[in-house]
Design a protein around this nucleic acid. Sequence first.
RNA 1: CGGGGUUUAGCGCAGUUGGUAGCGUGCCACGUUCGGGACGUGGAGGCCACGAGUUCGAGUCUCGUAACCCCGACCA
Length: 491
Amino acid sequence: MAKELTPRGENYSQWYNDLVIKADLAEQSAVRGCMVIKPYGYAIWEKMQRALDDKFKETGHHNAYFPIFIPKSFFCREAEHVKGFAKECAVVTHYRLRSTEDGSAVEVDPAAKLEEELIVRPTSETIIWNTYKNWIQSYRDLPILCNQWANVVRWEMRTRLFLRTAEFLWQEGHTAHETREEAEEEARKMLDVYSDFAENFMAVPVIKGVKTANERFAGALNTYTIEALMQDGKALQSGTSHFLGQNFAKAFDVTFMNREGKSEYVWATSWGVSTRLMGALIMAHSDDNGLVLPPKLAPTQVVIVPVYKTNEERAAIAAKANEVVARLRSKGISVLFDDNDKKKPGWKFAEYELKGFPIRIALGPRDIAKNEGEVHRRDTMEKFQMSLDGIEDRLVALLDEMQANIFSKAKAYRDAHVTRVDTYEEFKEVLKNKGGFVSAHWDGTTETEIQIKEETKATIRCIPIGNEPEEGKCILTGKPSHQRVLFAISY
RNA sequence: CGGGGUUUAGCGCAGUUGGUAGCGUGCCACGUUCGGGACGUGGAGGCCACGAGUUCGAGUCUCGUAACCCCGACCA
């Protein structure tokens, strides 16, 4: 029992942390608040990246890259933006080190102080809009649809692997448009791209919605969000898409000649998802045996574990296994044949379950004799015998079924944890004992929102898109309300 | 920045009234094993966070310093 996990029920945070480390996804780095993503974790992230990138390309976007450093003066151009990020910025003040007098160490060379400090990007709106200024003169130059895969730094007080780290990997799309309508449509479209990805690849059901003014991105006119629910009943903001209006165009003086020959400020959007999605993936599906990966994101979908005593058996199984490997690969299934002789089958079973490999096939002498394999599926932990004839087609179907099953399981949990309440007492009771989203009336004011947050720790996660209008009374103030909003305690 | 805690082998930990360092796991070697995290034997691995004190003697007591963790405030 080398890698026993903390049970999920007892201490969810510890379970999560344990799992991330023991499944070889990531670990705390020696640098405060920073994370090392290990090869296995990164392989999953790469699959996510690839799927997202394909979607971005399909919707007409191009990848580009902008500097990691933002001159302080750029950063301060947009008042709300700087207010939102100022408290968590890493700042470069010098560009050189020197040896100390006794030669035993190095120190910052005071003579190498930068004239203007550089901010390590917490997000790239400012450096990008400073650049877009030079790219845009006419409506013919629009739209600009760029995406960047990058790292950003936000000096958070408290960090958690994948969910909140001082440095994290993400993608940030930054688009420039001719009209308000086009920009708003873009922001909405990218929200749909995100929710499609979350649900169809990650198998994580999400609620699409609009953020309240209080929760909006610093500098945006409107922030759209996808909100997912974790198994401990906390919500996780999993992706955001912002309609920035003309705020950044005005801050960086980006104008274009419109079709009427008049000068106009450019309309903007930005949108991003980060390695936080890894956290969502882990917390949405995993169980006490470890990680559960949806087949579309599993770096390896099928692992074949040989079971043998003698070298003759080992050779016979290997021959059969290699044949199965080739057939599975011909159907596009990623497969590993683990004939490492140093580890025993039982050890391998546990290890691959911990790492969330969707399907395992055990091949032993008994199976070979019958031309069968023992198939184990990770999502339900069921085992059954399967003929090796045509196994490739059956596993393609099984992987699809598992993808769907993992999603519907998560969705059933999520749906069971959206609770409608009409009084503040019920509201507090549900948050305390059941968790999840609480659908309630709110009077629409920031004061009420903040008071509820202070009293219950719950925030308004979003106003769901397509919300049915409904007359009611604010749970806190009793003032009239025209629709319900979703509250939750969140990460 | 408030409140609590930790620091001893690669990792996880124990170490009693102060007496000179231990367990689990991992690692190396050999043998028996191999259908759910096998076992035996042998082996390597330590400035007990750092600095000062008390003492014949400090992992253990006192003071100081640092790093990290948890709970708050801040946030994708």
